[in-house]
Design a protein around this nucleic acid. Structure first.
Lengths: 210, 210
DNA sequence: TTGACGTGTTCACTATAGGAAACAGAGTTT
DNA sequence: AAACTCTGTTTCCTATAGTGAACACGTCAA
């Protein structure tokens, strides 16, 4: 028991407790919106129902507003959340971001059936989520439920051989180099057929329509 | 308080927003996302750094999470806010389309520098465009101009070794298994370094958002 | 059966967000 | 000049979000 709690504590310390908080300056953004509309703190207070002092603290990043407070802001100021979260500066096109991931250097996310390696996790705002997966499962029974998530998924077999089970189709056998594109809200599950664990590369779309 | 209240009102009406208030059961939504990924509260706790108990209360709408907490959720679960705020209401999607491409069965598009093989071209309406490319070019000089297109691109080297030239960065050498994610409106070009032509898998986002 | 897990929930306590009121400036008016 | 009015800030105090531990409930293995 103690060994386990130690392990859990170690994990928590290792994973959580990020030394830095996201630099998303929404206080700055709020102030920008307020001044752009020539509103005073009192105006905003009456519109949102939040105290003047609270608004001041939010603008100066002295407190982190509750989600209900954020909702009051959204409703009261007639803005929507993406607008509030848009970085204070206009986003120039051609940002030219990039995120390199050397072989095996991705972020690991093991599960009983899959062993995921997230591939470009430095970049926060991206439209696709690429990851490499080692398929540990050998039988469909190992899945308690369909895997499903919003959006679409592209998948290519890098090594080994797999069987792709889907909700609406017959199981499909895929060999190295074969690829498939499908709606990922359709239930799906992968199983290794080869002796060694199969490896697949997946790219999922991220939910958009802000 | 000024004489331009009319103007303000006019602006507000012009930019006119929805009169409806969003119930925004984000607890429900969080639980949905968690279960869809087959995560336990402990998993989410380790990913986000939030306590198991806190997550439980958020899911059951017993507390309204702080904005920093929401950010931890976003970062830890690799989702973005719209996705978290999407009402858990009906998902009429579940079209369950799919498009299989066996190895070497893609649609060929040869150019002097690249030899593209489009991978899932049966499906018309899709958010990503996957293709396999044989890199014939051996020198940056063979490109008359930067390659650039709207959106983002993910790329993994399947065989051989390449050099990725980009508009804003130093050339980057990539070996088999290495991958990179970048804004594709930044000029880019690939060159084979290995004796045999290198082969890469690319996935591009498609332009607009519905 | 027992005990050792692992799940989600609830409890008691600490940390912190939110609100009323006091504060400190900058203009205006007298 | 003082007195008034509006601005944004700071100071308490309370309400509540966040945490760790204990809990209740399952599953699994001996």
């Amino acid at each position: 028991m103690s060994a386990n709690t130690d392990q859990q504590a170690a994990l928590r310390i290792a994973s959580g407790r990020k030394p830095f908080v996201e630099p998303l300056r929404l206080g700055e953004r709020l102030k920008e919106i307020r001044l752009a509309n020539q509103w005073t703190l009192e105006d905003v207070s009456q519109r949102t129902g939040l105290a003047r002092s609270t608004l001041s603290k939010i603008e100066n990043d002295q407190i982190s507003p509750t989600f209900t407070a954020v909702q009051k802001l959204i409703n009261g100021l007639n803005i929507d959340l993406p607008q509030l979260l848009t970085p204070p500066k206009v986003q120039p096109r051609t940002m030219g971001r990039r995120d390199l991931t050397r072989r095996g250097e991705g972020q690991l996310h093991p599960t009983p059936t899959y062993e995921h390696e997230l591939l470009s996790c430095e970049l926060a705002q991206k439209r696709m989520i690429p990851f490499k997966t080692i398929v540990r499962a050998r039988s469909f029974d190992e899945f308690s439920e369909w895997v499903r998530h919003d959006g679409e998924e592209f998948l290519m077999v890098l090594e080994g051989e797999i069987c792709l089970y889907t909700e609406f189709y017959e199981p499909l056998q895929l060999s190295r180099g074969d690829s498939i594109y499908f709606d990922s809200d359709m239930g799906h599950a992968l199983v290794s057929l080869s002796e060694d664990d199969a490896v697949v590369l997946s790219v999922c779309t991220r939910g958009d329509t802000a």
